[in-house]
Deep mutational scan, measured.
Amino acid sequence: RDEMEEWSASEASLFEEALEKYGKDFNDIRQDFLPWKSLTSIIEYYYMWKTTD
Results as ranks from 00 to 15, higher is better:
residue 28 D to V: 15
residue 3 E to N: 15
residue 38 S to A: 02
residue 6 E to K: 13
residue 20 E to F: 06
residue 5 E to W: 05
residue 36 W to G: 07
residue 12 A to D: 01
residue 9 A to M: 01
residue 41 S to R: 01
residue 1 R to P: 07
residue 10 S to N: 12
residue 5 E to I: 10
residue 7 W to Y: 07
residue 48 M to R: 14
residue 37 K to E: 02
residue 44 E to A: 07
residue 21 K to Y: 06
residue 39 L to T: 08
residue 17 E to A: 05
residue 19 L to N: 03
residue 12 A to N: 11
residue 41 S to H: 04
residue 46 Y to R: 04
residue 15 F to K: 01
residue 45 Y to Q: 06
residue 23 G to E: 02
residue 12 A to F: 00
residue 36 W to M: 04
residue 49 W to E: 13
residue 50 K to I: 05
residue 46 Y to V: 00
residue 12 A to M: 13
residue 7 W to T: 01
residue 19 L to D: 01
residue 49 W to C: 13
residue 6 E to S: 09
residue 41 S to P: 14
residue 52 T to A: 11
residue 16 E to R: 08
residue 2 D to T: 14
residue 23 G to F: 08
residue 37 K to A: 03
residue 19 L to E: 02
residue 29 I to T: 08
residue 48 M to E: 10
residue 52 T to S: 12
residue 41 S to E: 14
residue 27 N to E: 15
residue 51 T to Q: 15
residue 8 S to Q: 03
residue 3 E to T: 15
residue 13 S to K: 15
residue 1 R to W: 12
residue 48 M to N: 11
residue 53 D to V: 09
residue 48 M to Q: 13
residue 20 E to C: 04
residue 18 A to N: 01
residue 2 D to Q: 15
residue 2 D to Y: 00
residue 17 E to H: 03
residue 23 G to H: 03
residue 45 Y to H: 13
residue 25 D to K: 15
residue 50 K to G: 01
residue 47 Y to I: 01
residue 2 D to I: 11
residue 11 E to N: 01
residue 49 W to N: 15
residue 3 E to Y: 15
residue 20 E to H: 07
residue 51 T to H: 10
residue 13 S to T: 10
residue 2 D to P: 05
residue 44 E to C: 02
residue 39 L to Y: 06
residue 38 S to L: 04
residue 14 L to F: 02
residue 22 Y to Q: 00
residue 53 D to A: 11
residue 22 Y to C: 14
residue 50 K to W: 01
residue 23 G to R: 02
residue 26 F to L: 10
residue 5 E to A: 14
residue 27 N to L: 05
residue 10 S to C: 06
residue 45 Y to W: 06
residue 21 K to C: 04
residue 13 S to L: 12
residue 48 M to V: 10
residue 23 G to V: 01
residue 44 E to V: 03
residue 25 D to F: 05
residue 38 S to G: 15
residue 24 K to Y: 09
residue 17 E to L: 11
residue 12 A to E: 07
residue 13 S to I: 07
residue 45 Y to S: 06
residue 39 L to N: 14
residue 47 Y to W: 11
residue 36 W to A: 03
residue 9 A to Y: 01
residue 42 I to P: 02
residue 24 K to V: 10
residue 45 Y to V: 00
residue 43 I to F: 07
residue 29 I to N: 15
residue 19 L to W: 13
residue 25 D to R: 15
residue 32 D to E: 15
residue 3 E to M: 13
residue 41 S to M: 03
residue 1 R to G: 14
residue 48 M to K: 13
residue 1 R to H: 07
residue 22 Y to D: 00
residue 16 E to K: 08
residue 2 D to K: 15
residue 23 G to Y: 08
residue 1 R to N: 15
residue 28 D to Y: 14
residue 15 F to P: 01
residue 1 R to F: 15
residue 7 W to V: 00
residue 52 T to G: 12
residue 12 A to H: 12
residue 18 A to Y: 04
residue 50 K to C: 09
residue 9 A to R: 08
residue 44 E to Q: 12
residue 46 Y to T: 00
residue 44 E to K: 10
residue 27 N to G: 08
residue 49 W to H: 13
residue 40 T to K: 14
residue 10 S to H: 11
residue 52 T to E: 13
residue 41 S to L: 06
residue 26 F to A: 02
residue 44 E to I: 03
residue 39 L to D: 07
residue 42 I to D: 02
residue 19 L to A: 04
residue 47 Y to T: 15
residue 11 E to F: 01
residue 27 N to C: 09
residue 4 M to Q: 01
residue 6 E to W: 01
residue 19 L to F: 15
residue 51 T to N: 12
residue 52 T to H: 08
residue 19 L to H: 07
residue 21 K to L: 07
residue 19 L to I: 13
residue 37 K to R: 08
residue 23 G to C: 08
residue 16 E to N: 05
residue 22 Y to K: 04
residue 47 Y to V: 04
residue 18 A to G: 15
residue 30 R to I: 12
residue 48 M to P: 02
residue 42 I to W: 10
residue 37 K to F: 03
residue 2 D to S: 10
residue 17 E to K: 10
residue 8 S to H: 04
residue 48 M to T: 11
residue 43 I to C: 07
residue 24 K to T: 15
residue 44 E to L: 04
residue 7 W to D: 02
residue 51 T to D: 13
residue 49 W to A: 12
residue 37 K to G: 02
residue 40 T to A: 09
residue 30 R to F: 09
residue 40 T to R: 12
residue 42 I to G: 05
residue 16 E to A: 11
residue 12 A to G: 05
residue 21 K to H: 04
residue 42 I to E: 01
residue 36 W to T: 04
residue 13 S to M: 13
residue 23 G to D: 06
residue 3 E to H: 09
residue 11 E to G: 04
residue 45 Y to P: 03
residue 38 S to W: 00
residue 52 T to I: 09
residue 16 E to G: 01
residue 2 D to W: 09
residue 20 E to Q: 07
residue 28 D to A: 15
residue 18 A to V: 07
residue 51 T to L: 11
residue 13 S to E: 14
residue 50 K to D: 05
residue 10 S to P: 03
residue 11 E to R: 01
residue 19 L to K: 02
residue 38 S to P: 06
residue 9 A to E: 12
residue 30 R to Q: 15
residue 41 S to V: 02
residue 24 K to G: 10
residue 17 E to C: 06
residue 22 Y to W: 02
residue 7 W to I: 02
residue 22 Y to M: 03
residue 43 I to V: 08
residue 40 T to P: 09
residue 5 E to G: 07
residue 23 G to Q: 03
